[in-house]
Simulated scan of single mutants.
Amino acid sequence: MHRIAAAFAKLPQKVIWRYKGSRPDTLGNNTLLVDWMPQNDLLGHPKIKVFVAHGGTNGVQEALYHGVPVVGIPMFFDQYDNLLRLEDRGTAKILTLSTVDKDNNFLQALRLVLNEPSYRMNMQRLHKGAAHLKPASLRMSWYSYHSVDVALFLGGAVLLMFLTTFFLIRCLCNAMCKPKIKRE
């Protein structure tokens, strides 16, 4: 953690780091430590430049949605595969836990993603083409979105049932309650 904090301190940008534990000695003035922050809101900020993440599905999807390039450090399960898909598309740089602290790899990866515009451009391109992340409601008509068609159908069905029942009861009442005419 001390080398990561030192790498952040060497950056000219401000850093927000979700970190729990004792404050690293090498922490720079440009780094704000927080226990928790709404990740989606942070990624949606227009000044965000890079997202350092473990590569979980939600984080990757949020980074895609907001068009923010990633420096990824996968830990387990699907994280490496998620980050590999981003790296193959030129939107992320992957580091392993064992090499993060060696030879300033972390700082080099950060600087590469920050200073090479292709990472951001590729992520922006993927974001605009991420139709699977856009809600289906964007393609719906207003009456379908507000379920007007469903309400009219159900209302019509209920009305038809009431009218059928009403006329059936009326016919039965007329047949049963019809006065008998005496013939002389």
Results as ranks from 00 to 15, higher is better:
Ala5Ile: 08
Ala5Trp: 10
Ala7Ile: 07
Ala7Pro: 02
Pro12Tyr: 05
Lys14Ala: 14
Val15Phe: 10
Ser22Met: 02
Pro24Trp: 08
Pro24Gly: 02
Asp25Phe: 07
Thr26Arg: 14
Asn29Glu: 15
Asn30Cys: 06
Thr31Gly: 06
Met37Thr: 12
Pro38Ser: 11
Gln39Gly: 10
Asn40Glu: 12
Asp41Glu: 15
His45Met: 09
Ile48Lys: 00
Val50Lys: 03
Phe51Ser: 06
His54Gln: 15
Gly56Val: 04
Gly59Gln: 01
Gln61Leu: 14
Glu62Trp: 01
Ala63Tyr: 04
Leu64Arg: 03
Leu64Asp: 06
Tyr65Gln: 07
Tyr65Lys: 09
His66Met: 06
Val70Asp: 04
Gly72Lys: 03
Gly72Val: 03
Pro74Thr: 06
Phe77Asn: 06
Asp78Ala: 12
Asp78Cys: 11
Asn82Gly: 04
Leu84Asn: 05
Leu84Gln: 06
Leu86Gln: 06
Leu86Pro: 05
Gly90Gln: 09
Lys93Asn: 03
Asp101Val: 00
Asp103Ala: 13
Asn104Ala: 11
Arg111Asn: 15
Arg111Leu: 15
Val113Thr: 05
Asn115Ile: 00
Glu116Met: 01
Pro117Met: 10
Pro117Asp: 14
Ser118Arg: 14
Ser118Phe: 02
Met123Cys: 06
Met123Leu: 11
Gln124Ser: 09
His127Tyr: 01
His127Gly: 00
Lys128Glu: 07
Lys128Ala: 00
Gly129His: 12
Ala130His: 09
Ala131His: 07
His132Asp: 08
His132Val: 04
Lys134Met: 05
Lys134Gln: 12
Pro135Glu: 05
Leu138Lys: 07
Leu138Phe: 09
Ser141Phe: 02
Ser144Ile: 12
His146Arg: 11
His146Ile: 06
Ser147His: 12
Ala151Gln: 11
Ala151Cys: 08
Phe153Ala: 05
Gly156Gln: 00
Ala157Phe: 14
Met161Asn: 08
Met161Leu: 15
Met161Thr: 14
Thr165His: 04
Phe166Ile: 10
Asn174Val: 07
Met176Gln: 10
Cys177Gln: 09
Pro179Lys: 09
Lys180Met: 04
Arg183Pro: 00
